[in-house]
Simulated assay, not measured.
Amino acid sequence: MCYDDADGTAGRQEAGPESPSRRAFSRLLLAGTGLAALSACTPAQSFTPSGTPGPTPGTGTGSSTPTAAAAASTPPASTPSAPVPESTPAATQTATPVPPSAAARPPSAAAPGPQHSLSDPTSPWVIVNKHRPLSPATFVPPDLARPAVRLATSGEAALVNSTTAAAAERMFAAAAADGVIITLASGYRSFATQRATYGSYVNSRGQAEADTASARPGYSEHQTGWAFDIGDGSGADAFTPQFKDRPAAIWAKANAHRFGFVVRYPWMLHEITGYFYEPWHLRFIGKEAAADMRARGIGTLEQYFGLEAAPAYR
Rank of each mutant, 00 (worst) to 15 (best):
81 S>K: 11
81 S>R: 13
82 A>D: 11
82 A>R: 13
83 P>E: 04
84 V>Q: 13
85 P>H: 06
85 P>F: 05
86 E>M: 13
86 E>D: 10
86 E>W: 14
87 S>Q: 14
87 S>M: 08
87 S>E: 08
87 S>G: 03
88 T>G: 10
89 P>Y: 09
89 P>N: 07
91 A>V: 11
92 T>C: 12
92 T>P: 03
93 Q>M: 12
93 Q>Y: 14
94 T>F: 13
94 T>D: 14
95 A>C: 10
95 A>P: 05
96 T>E: 13
96 T>L: 14
96 T>M: 09
97 P>S: 06
97 P>K: 01
99 P>G: 06
99 P>I: 02
100 P>Q: 09
103 A>E: 10
104 A>K: 12
104 A>W: 09
106 P>G: 05
107 P>N: 04
108 S>N: 08
108 S>A: 15
109 A>W: 07
109 A>R: 02
110 A>Y: 12
111 A>F: 05
112 P>G: 00
113 G>M: 06
113 G>E: 08
114 P>A: 05
116 H>A: 12
116 H>F: 15
116 H>P: 03
117 S>P: 08
118 L>T: 15
122 T>F: 07
122 T>Y: 06
124 P>A: 00
125 W>L: 09
125 W>E: 06
126 V>S: 02
127 I>V: 15
129 N>K: 05
129 N>R: 06
130 K>N: 13
131 H>T: 12
132 R>H: 15
133 P>S: 07
133 P>N: 08
135 S>I: 07
135 S>D: 10
135 S>H: 13
135 S>W: 03
135 S>T: 14
136 P>K: 10
137 A>Q: 15
137 A>W: 03
138 T>A: 13
139 F>E: 01
140 V>Q: 10
140 V>R: 14
141 P>T: 03
141 P>K: 03
142 P>C: 03
142 P>L: 02
145 A>M: 11
147 P>C: 05
147 P>L: 04
148 A>Q: 09
150 R>W: 08
153 T>C: 15
153 T>F: 08
153 T>M: 09
154 S>Q: 11
154 S>L: 04
154 S>K: 02
154 S>I: 00
155 G>R: 00
156 E>K: 03
157 A>C: 11
159 L>Y: 15
159 L>T: 09
160 V>S: 05
161 N>V: 05
162 S>M: 06
162 S>P: 00
162 S>A: 15
163 T>N: 07
165 A>P: 02
167 A>C: 05
168 A>G: 12
168 A>N: 04
170 R>T: 08
170 R>V: 04
170 R>H: 11
170 R>K: 12
171 M>K: 00
171 M>D: 00
173 A>S: 11
175 A>L: 02
175 A>V: 00
176 A>M: 02
176 A>V: 02
176 A>C: 00
176 A>N: 02
177 A>I: 05
178 D>C: 06
179 G>V: 06
179 G>I: 04
179 G>Q: 03
181 I>P: 04
182 I>N: 09
184 L>G: 01
185 A>M: 09
185 A>G: 10
186 S>H: 12
186 S>E: 13
187 G>P: 01
189 R>D: 07
189 R>N: 10
190 S>K: 01
192 A>S: 14
193 T>E: 15
196 A>S: 12
197 T>M: 13
197 T>H: 10
198 Y>A: 00
198 Y>S: 01
198 Y>P: 00
199 G>Q: 06
200 S>Y: 09
201 Y>V: 06
201 Y>I: 01
201 Y>H: 11
201 Y>Q: 09
